[in-house]
Design a protein around this nucleic acid. Structure first.
Length: 222
DNA sequence: CCAGACGTTGTT
DNA sequence: GTCTGG
DNA sequence: CCAGACGTTGTT
DNA sequence: GTCTGG
């Protein structure tokens, strides 16, 4: 995990579910891949929630070349607080990646079958993430993010041995608060998803190509 | 001291 | 930036 | 995660 | 085979 996900809910639904005051700009996407734009929820300067776009693939502020971001797409919950490339973002720059499903590839011998995992009611959810700002001369800052992975719950374990860390709504504010320095409490939020409503089913290998982005990608295989 | 890495997944 | 390895 | 490229010189 | 790009 986790190299593809979806955010298909319209902007109005995102505003409502995540309690965003300002208008949200988001076009539904069925195949969000690393290096592409993620919808990221953070706190604005007034402390309210806001959603903005960030490139998926974290570029630490000290990077000489932003291509390092191609490899920094996932951070393990077990080590995110310690790894040199991630720890400063974990300490001061936590965020939520908004999604309503993710893909995992299950290996059967040499065959890789993609599965789509989502909540039974298709509600959007929030994946724990971290972000970074890479300053460029004569250009806007490059904002990037990584998502955090953890061990799978019983449903996800049927497909793969990792899953994204999905946060409970009551943890959103504590996760996003940059002043929160309770590492133990933060890490405790990153367990496998504990709800009973995660579902998984096989989907077409059309999802394999990042170029494909249609509703067909999330249709259950007959 | 300076140089070089800084990551995960999956596969063997 | 900060740590590890040479 | 998977797909796709993997190179230089010289010319326009 | 391995790295980069999406």
């Amino acid at each position: 995990m986790c190299g593809r996900y979806t955010l298909t809910a319209p902007a109005e639904v995102l505003s409502e579910v995540f309690e965003i005051e300002e208008p949200v700009n988001w076009t539904p996407r069925y195949n969000i891949a690393p290096t592409q734009e993620a919808a990221v929820l953070g706190l604005n300067h007034q402390g309210g929630r806001s959603i903005g776009g960030m490139k998926w693939g974290l570029v630490p502020s000290w990077a000489k070349d932003p291509s390092i971001g191609n490899r920094m797409i996932n951070a393990r919950a077990e080590t995110v607080a310690e790894k040199p490339a991630y720890r400063s973002s974990f300490k001061k720059r936590r965020c939520l990646l908004l999604a309503d499903g993710f893909y995992e590839w299950k290996k059967a011998g040499s065959v890789k079958q993609p599965y789509y995992l989502s909540l039974q009611d298709h509600r959007p959810f929030a994946i724990a993430g971290i972000w970074s700002r890479w300053r460029r001369e004569e250009q806007d800052d490059l904002l990037t993010c990584s998502l955090i992975t953890t061990s799978p719950n019983s449903v996800a374990a049927e497909v793969h041995d990792r899953m994204p860390a999905i946060l409970q709504a009551e943890d959103f504010n504590a996760w996003l608060d940059p002043a929160n320095d309770d590492t133990q409490a933060l890490l405790a939020m990153l367990g496998p998803y504990s709800g009973e409503d995660l579902q998984a089913f096989a989907v077409s290998t059309l999802v394999n190509s990042p170029k494909n982005d249609t509703p067909q990608l999330i249709e259950r295989l007959a």
